[in-house]
Design a protein around this nucleic acid. Sequence first.
DNA 1: TAGATTGTTAATCGATTAACAATC
DNA 2: TAGATTGTTAATCGATTAACAATC
Lengths: 208, 208
Amino acid sequence: MNSVSVPDIIVSRLPVYLRALQYMAANGITTTSSQELGDKVGISAAQIRKDLSQFGEFGKQGTGYHIPFLIERLVQILRVEQKWDIALVGMGELGHAILRYQGFINRGFRIVACFDNDPAKIGSRVDVYTVEDVSTLGDRLKSSGIKMAMLCVPASMAQKVTDKLVESGVRGILNYAPVSLTVPSHVRVQYIDPVIGLQRMAYYLNEK
Amino acid sequence: MNSVSVPDIIVSRLPVYLRALQYMAANGITTTSSQELGDKVGISAAQIRKDLSQFGEFGKQGTGYHIPFLIERLVQILRVEQKWDIALVGMGELGHAILRYQGFINRGFRIVACFDNDPAKIGSRVDVYTVEDVSTLGDRLKSSGIKMAMLCVPASMAQKVTDKLVESGVRGILNYAPVSLTVPSHVRVQYIDPVIGLQRMAYYLNEK
DNA sequence: TAGATTGTTAATCGATTAACAATC
DNA sequence: TAGATTGTTAATCGATTAACAATC
């Protein structure tokens, strides 16, 4: 247990390191240095060493980092050794696409339930899932001990569903709805709104 | 023209302010304060005032900000008064979902072309689009003057396609591939990888 | 061994916050 | 007018970088 908590900005970079290391591992590379890893992810070598040093000593002077070992440690640090169960709320176009996405399972996450409020959708099967009634969300989440959710409902409903998720014990929400959410401090929200990134880039484009 | 450039961290918050303001406007609210806006987006009032002050004086003492006016100014600052043309590369499951997404057009962006390298897909129609051959990407982008792209190809192909986009004059890339990209400094990349956000949140979850 | 690279310290740099005069 | 809230300054806080002894 740490006496001082690790800054969230450092935590936010660890998944990026992990992704790059796993990519290298998949290509048969077994060793890297802070310099090389930094070049790949666009972060300085000093910062990578500083970040990792928050959690231990994972490298060797002269040779750098053994990739399988560093991956193992990062996976532990990020708590993605096992799979976290996730509930998905909102079975529109986007919810369907997310359900079919195959990229969660080998990175620590597994969607185990999906919900909607549309009677026409409730009870229908999507892939291996049966769409559940969002009015049963609370009981289902509590009894299953689900701690994470993905939110794919319209912006106008997002806060209300969020309140329900929080009340049901959810501690992390991946929010695809284009709206800022208000949650208590023990709950974390990550935002996925492609337009935010596009607008941020548009600022730097000169003329049409 | 600014003598000193605005920090990117400030630019990154402007789209969040804009989104919240447009949401308020859509609900008939015409006035807000830095305090109220800050509460909504989870940012301190002082920071919002400081951020906005980089670009001018948009509020009134005692009454705060007139929302339609502030929206107008933010839209100008972010250069999203007109629509930016965007090319989408990679017509898999995700590319299809993005193509059908209706949320870009009224926030400053419009997908105008889509590409794939699969002969079975090239020439086929998806929604109002015809899938083009990615080998014709360079000519198409240059002749159309397209400056932004969305990347939905497999991670293993992402860097190669990125190089081609950059060479074709693209200056902003929204990257959905789960891999870090290397680009020259005049090109910006925004990353959309839901797993990065999930892993970041998993760090704070105690036990399974 | 010589070269390479770590982990860490101190210095630098930049971002956030607090406070308040100005003024609507 | 009195209360509210801005824009801005100075102080604080935190993050990044540079440098290097230790050592593989």
